[in-house]
C-alpha cells in the first residue's frame, strides 16, 4: 500500500480577474493525507497561503458530494481529474503518487470566461436552459400524476439524461469547447417523456440557437465529453439531439 501521507508539487493557474493575464504558479504541499478529497487538498493549500499572508486560490464548490456541479477544474489536462465518473470534490488523493506534479487549470472555453483563478462564469449554460429547457406548465394546471403513464424504460432513460449536473466539464474537455452533451441531456430528458412532446420541436430549435449564440464550438464527435462526464452521460443523447433538431428543422412549423 502507498504511504498514507504524500507530498505534491502543484502548478496552479492564478489569474486576478477576467481581463488580467494569468499564469501557472508553483506550490509545494507536504503531509497530504491520501484520504483527503482534491478540494480538501486545495483547502490545505489555501490555509497555508493565508497564514503566509498570500492570497488563497479561488475555486468554486458547494455540495462536495458530486451533485451540485459547482466544482471543477482541469487536472493534468483532464476535466475533473483522472478518475472516471468522478467530480473533483469526490476525487481522493489516494489516486495520486507521492511527489507527483499536478497542473491545475480552470475550465477553458470562450463561453466560460475566467472570473478569478479557477472560477469561471458558466451562466451561458443557464441561458441555454432559458431558451427552452423546460415544459410550459403553470403551477396548478397539472393533471393527476398517474394520468400521464410513462413506460418504465423511457423514464429510466430520461433519468439517465436528467442526471446531468451542469458542471460544464463536457465543454472543458471538448477539443472544440462544444456544449452538445449538456444541451443534448436536457433535450433528451424532455424528448423521452410524453410531457415534453408539445414543445419538442420548438425546444430543439431554440436551445440549439441559444447554444450557438453563446459561442460554444461545434461538435465533431470526439467523445471526450462522455469520457469526462462525472455522471456518465452518453453521447447517444447527442445523436438524439441531432435527430430532434433535424426533425424540427425539416418537419415542423416552428421558428426557433
Amino acid at each position: 500500500m502507498a504511504a498514507k501521507i504524500i507530498s505534491l508539487n502543484l502548478k496552479v493557474w492564478r489569474q486576478n480577474g477576467p481581463d488580467k493575464k494569468g499564469a501557472l504558479e508553483n506550490y509545494r504541499l507536504e503531509n497530504i493525507s491520501i484520504d483527503m478529497s482534491f478540494l480538501e487538498m486545495i483547502d490545505v493549500l489555501n490555509e497555508k497561503l493565508t497564514v503566509e499572508g498570500k492570497e488563497p486560490v479561488a475555486f468554486d464548490h458547494d455540495c462536495r458530494e458530486g451533485i451540485c456541479g459547482m466544482c471543477g477544474a482541469v487536472v493534468d489536462g483532464i476535466a475533473h481529474g483522472p478518475e472516471k465518473e468522478t467530480t473533483l470534490c469526490q476525487l481522493h488523493m489516494r489516486h495520486f503518487q507521492d511527489g507527483q506534479t499536478l497542473t491545475i487549470e480552470p475550465f477553458r472555453a470562450k463561453a466560460f470566461p475566467v472570473i478569478k483563478d479557477l472560477v469561471v462564469d458558466r451562466s451561458s449554460l443557464d441561458i441555454i436552459i432559458q431558451a427552452g429547457g423546460f415544459i410550459s406548465v403553470n403551477t396548478g394546471s397539472a393533471p393527476d400524476a398517474n394520468g400521464i403513464p410513462v413506460p418504465q424504460h423511457k423514464a429510466e432513460q430520461a433519468m439517465d439524461a436528467a442526471a446531468c449536473i451542469g458542471c460544464g466539464a463536457c465543454v472543458a474537455a471538448c477539443p472544440n469547447a462544444a456544449a452538445m452533451l449538456f444541451v443534448s441531456a436536457k433535450i433528451s430528458q424532455l424528448a423521452l417523456l410524453p410531457q415534453g412532446a408539445p414543445e419538442r420541436e420548438k425546444r430543439a430549435l431554440s436551445m440549439v440557437q441559444a447554444m450557438d449564440k453563446e459561442g460554444f464550438g461545434n461538435c465533431t464527435n470526439e467523445r471526450e465529453c462522455e469520457a469526462v462526464c462525472p455522471k456518465g452521460i452518453s453521447i447517444r443523447n447527442i445523436a438524439r439531439l441531432n435527430r430532434e433538431f433535424l426533425r424540427a428543422s425539416l418537419l415542423s412549423d416552428e421558428q426557433g
Binding site: 482541469v74 497542473t103 472555453a109 470562450k110 469547447a177 460554444f216 461545434n218
Partner: peptide, 9 residues
C-alpha cells in the same frame, strides 16, 4: 475560436 485560451497541459 471557441477556446480562446489554450490549456497548458
Amino acid at each position: 475560436g471557441a477556446r480562446s485560451s489554450r490549456y497548458a497541459v
